[in-house]
Amino acid sequence: GPLAAALGGETTERLAKVGITLGAEGLSQINRLVIKALTAEEQEIYARPQEQLAVALGQGLAAAAKQRPLVLVLDTYEIVDQTLCDYALRQVIQASGGQTIWVIAGRANLADSEQRGQIYFRGYRQDFSDQVYPVQLREFGLEEIQQFFAKQVEPIDATQAEALSRFSRGIPFVINLAAELWAKGVPFEEITAAPNQGDATQSAHYQIIKAMSQRFLVHCLGPEHRADRQTVFGLAMLRRSEAKLLRAMLDVEALEPRLQELQSRYSFILAESLQLDNKLKTFLGEYLLAPVRRSEPLLQEINQRALSWLDLRIEQATAGMTDRADRLAEEGIKFRQPA
């Protein structure tokens, strides 16, 4: 490559052996040698590889669109809902030309700029002005659920639509999964309700719960996102907003900065109210109750910290109190035994 050509084989081999000990000045010298060996075009790529890759992708799409207009659909914006990814996506869009139409679907408002916690989100209108056409899609109502099933599988009655509406919370993704399962012959009742016996995690109902939860958690399922997952799970386990309890569960002192930072990356976190999006909390609560998940070390740690905090609260609240029966006995009050 350019580096080997610039330095020569023998020098490169020597540097490989001692490279780990090179200081900032040595690395700077190598960088200058590399740049000298590159053409002007290669230097642009070397200096800003990610940006150049995004632009090249956009230009490739523009070239393809000259033959035939393109419509590109990104149905889960949350996959790129991180600053660097979002920036790259905008560069691709800008370079893709007027023959390419982009359809981007997400839970948050992408068109308008707004403050998200401590992060300012730059709306797509600012970059693409009057080329942005926002459409707000609402949840499926009973009539729409029935229309969807009639078209995709077969008609369902009002009672079935009501049961599916309660389970799905009107989320099209869940309704589509339910339709696919019913088309395969899975009884409707097994889709909309958890089984009373047997392994619930093997049920069709749970498979939808799992798919929906993992759809929400697409960015924090990897081992490198353990802290993110811990925070989301902690919020899901809270019955009511309790900052002190959540701080203990997560073992963090600076709770607000952590939640604000997560809110900037995950639109389903509501940092100010210490809550998750209601739909996610509904599905995630059932997802976490699965035996295989309840035994995970991460959840066990959160539970143990919560119990320790609650035990301490009980101890503090009952400090100085004597047993009620003992106190009554001391006061000479006797209980009448039942006949």
Rank of each mutant, 00 (worst) to 15 (best):
5 A>Q: 11
13 E>C: 00
15 L>T: 03
17 K>I: 05
18 V>M: 10
18 V>A: 09
20 I>A: 15
29 Q>S: 07
31 N>R: 15
33 L>N: 11
37 A>W: 01
41 E>I: 02
47 A>I: 07
51 E>F: 02
52 Q>H: 09
53 L>S: 13
62 A>Q: 12
66 K>T: 12
70 L>A: 01
74 L>A: 09
75 D>W: 09
76 T>A: 14
76 T>H: 14
77 Y>E: 12
78 E>P: 08
79 I>Q: 14
82 Q>F: 07
83 T>E: 13
84 L>G: 08
84 L>Q: 14
85 C>W: 13
86 D>Y: 10
88 A>C: 10
90 R>M: 07
95 A>S: 13
96 S>Q: 05
99 Q>G: 07
101 I>M: 13
101 I>C: 14
103 V>C: 10
104 I>G: 03
106 G>P: 11
111 A>L: 06
112 D>Q: 13
117 G>L: 09
122 R>Y: 10
124 Y>G: 00
125 R>S: 07
125 R>V: 09
125 R>Y: 13
132 V>A: 08
133 Y>D: 08
133 Y>C: 09
140 F>G: 01
142 L>M: 07
146 Q>K: 15
150 A>Q: 15
151 K>T: 13
152 Q>L: 11
156 I>E: 01
156 I>F: 02
159 T>V: 07
162 E>G: 00
165 S>L: 12
166 R>D: 05
169 R>T: 05
178 A>Q: 04
179 A>Q: 04
179 A>K: 04
180 E>R: 13
186 V>C: 03
186 V>R: 02
187 P>A: 04
188 F>H: 05
189 E>G: 00
190 E>Q: 15
190 E>L: 08
191 I>C: 02
196 N>I: 03
197 Q>E: 14
199 D>S: 06
202 Q>L: 15
202 Q>K: 15
205 H>E: 02
205 H>Y: 13
207 Q>F: 07
208 I>W: 03
209 I>D: 02
210 K>S: 09
218 V>W: 08
219 H>V: 00
222 G>F: 03
224 E>R: 09
225 H>L: 06
226 R>K: 14
226 R>L: 14
229 R>Y: 11
230 Q>S: 10
232 V>A: 07
240 R>V: 10
245 L>Q: 15
248 A>Q: 06
254 A>Y: 08
254 A>I: 00
255 L>E: 01
256 E>S: 08
257 P>A: 03
257 P>V: 04
265 R>C: 06
267 S>I: 06
268 F>T: 02
268 F>N: 03
269 I>C: 06
272 E>D: 13
273 S>L: 00
277 D>H: 11
279 K>C: 08
281 K>Y: 06
287 Y>V: 05
288 L>R: 04
290 A>T: 02
291 P>G: 01
291 P>F: 00
300 Q>E: 15
300 Q>I: 12
304 Q>K: 10
309 W>M: 11
314 I>V: 14
317 A>L: 13
318 T>H: 05
321 M>P: 00
322 T>W: 11
324 R>Y: 13
325 A>Y: 11
326 D>R: 10
329 A>P: 01
330 E>G: 09
333 I>N: 00
338 P>R: 09
338 P>Q: 06
